[in-house]
Design a protein around this nucleic acid. Structure first.
Length: 444
DNA sequence: GAGAGGTAG
DNA sequence: GATTCTACCTCTC
């Protein structure tokens, strides 16, 4: 008697079934994403050196290829670049995360048409499970590149390989080696050429390896990607960590870093910012912490989460070595909550640790031990009078209707920008998410 | 479990 | 004078 294996039910394929079908992984990422988005809406930026700045217009986070050629590094402070900007014809933009987020969503939606399994890895890149012959895979990569340029208006590069680490590497080659024309499939590159490329690349270029590991690897004679790919995985695990061992195995073609499901809940939320001008008084800091407390409340509510622990912290500038101070307090909350009053009050627990006169450059709060909002009512004894009256949702409703800043609790409610608020003098319009900032088109 | 260290984008 | 922010993982104690 032969048992027959039941056929899979019709309908969408299960994840394990997809996994069996999936032969390779494609890494698609947008070239210098923020700068490319700025160019979508302002084509006059095309061909010009352009940098997008971090919060507070602090430093360059994204540079157009022309800006890179000027020798501007990532993280280079704007105050150092600015004096020469005019002479270089360099243009700077403040970061416009709302716009970038919206364009990112369009790119991801587009990629979803090419694979049933897209892992959104960051704002500008995604891993895709892909399947097909070598020729089909290369064609798929070229199709995605063309579609992103035509439908969204941004340039992307594609790396395709058997493992994530190799897909990352192939993507890098696609980007920096014009012969690949933006699409590189690892196994389609002749072995001797791959080795030459790997021999010429420092381990610091690898996904998961940064400066510290590079130093330690250098010390044992491992300098290039090729060196690391030939290392003994077990020895690497013993001398370093399982993380680096996975990198070695992945370089050798053994997948160890799986495609991930979309993260639903988060483990922690952080609200933190550097100030445009340092804060020196507890009164000002109280106001800042109130703002964060309410932001945390709104975000928790949005994700249907409650927090059990809140940590509040402040710190002086790392660049000022005198008078340094990094006060922080960890406040266990009496019960899981997303209530703005409770969170704000908890955040204020930092205030006694603040020394008047010290120049605090940054502050923030972190909520941890997050859990989904339960539906069972807390014991009467522990019931929170504010939550009962739903102050959080009420404030959200007003903010939605009358705009952010129209309502706030106590010190967070003051109108007009306090002088520590973020500096963003060169922000482009939020073209796609605000009615009053839509792009105008003139038909002449 | 907390904190340090490291990494990514 | 001035220099991002958020979130994760692993290791150690």
């Amino acid at each position: 008697m032969v048992k027959t294996i039941p056929r899979a039910a019709a309908g969408p394929m299960s994840k394990p079934a997809l996994m069996r079908q999936m032969q390779e992984i494609a890494l698609v990422d947008v070239n210098c994403f923020y700068a490319s988005v700025e160019r979508v809406f302002d084509p006059s930026l095309e061909g010009k050196p352009l940098v997008v700045l971090s919060n507070n217009d602090g430093c360059a986070v994204t540079r157009s290829p022309e800006a890179k050629r000027l020798g501007i590094g990532v993280g280079e402070p704007w105050f150092k670049i600015a004096p020469r900007a005019r002479e270089w014809g360099l243009i700077a933009r403040s970061s416009n995360y709302e716009l970038y987020g919206d364009i990112s969503a369009r790119v991801m939606e587009l990629l979803g048409r090419y694979s049933a399994w897209v892992e959104v890895y960051s704002i500008d890149e995604a891993f895709l499970g892909v399947k097909g012959s070598p020729a089909e895979l290369l064609q798929l990569g070229r199709d995605m590149k063309t579609a992103a340029a035509r439908n969204v208006g941004v340039p992307v590069c594609v790396g395709i390989a058997r493992t994530k680490t190799l897909a990352k590497l192939a993507n890098k080659w696609a980007k920096h080696n014009s012969t690949f024309d933006g699409v590189c499939r690892w196994d389609s590159v002749p072995a001797d050429r791959r080795e030459a490329l790997m021999a010429g690349l420092s381990v610091v270029e690898l996904w998961g390896v940064a400066t510290r590991l590079t130093k330690r690897l250098d010390a044992i004679g491992i300098h290039s990607v090729l060196d690391l790919s030939r290392a003994d995985p077990v020895r690497i695990r013993d001398k370093f960590s399982v993380v680096l061992m996975r990198t070695v195995l992945e370089l050798q073609g053994t997948p160890c870093i799986p495609m991930e499901e979309e993260r639903v809940g988060r483990d922690q939320l952080i609200f933190s910012r550097s100030f445009s001008t340092p804060i020196t008084t507890a009164a000002e800091l109280r106001q800042v912490l109130s703002v964060y407390g309410q932001q945390a409340s709104a975000r928790l509510a949005k994700h249907h989460l409650q927090a059990k622990v809140l940590t509040a912290f402040a710190g002086t500038s790392h660049y000022n070595q005198r008078d340094t101070s990094y006060p922080s307090v960890c406040v266990p909350l009496p019960m899981p909550t997303a209530d703005p009053v409770i969170l704000t009050k908890a955040a204020h627990a930092l205030l006694p640790a603040i020394h008047e006169g010290v120049k605090y450059a940054r502050a923030g709060i972190m909520v941890t031990d997050l859990r989904p909002t339960g539906n069972q009512k807390p014991l009467e004894l522990f019931e929170n009078p504010h939550e009962e009256r739903n102050i959080g949702p009420l404030m959200e409703d007003i903010a939605r209707r009358y705009g952010r800043g129209s309502i706030g609790l106590g010190y967070a409610g003051i109108r007009g920008g306090p002088d520590w608020s973020m500096k963003r003098g060169m922000r482009s319009p939020r073209y796609t998410t605000h009615w009053d900032e839509l792009p105008l088109v003139k038909a002449a």
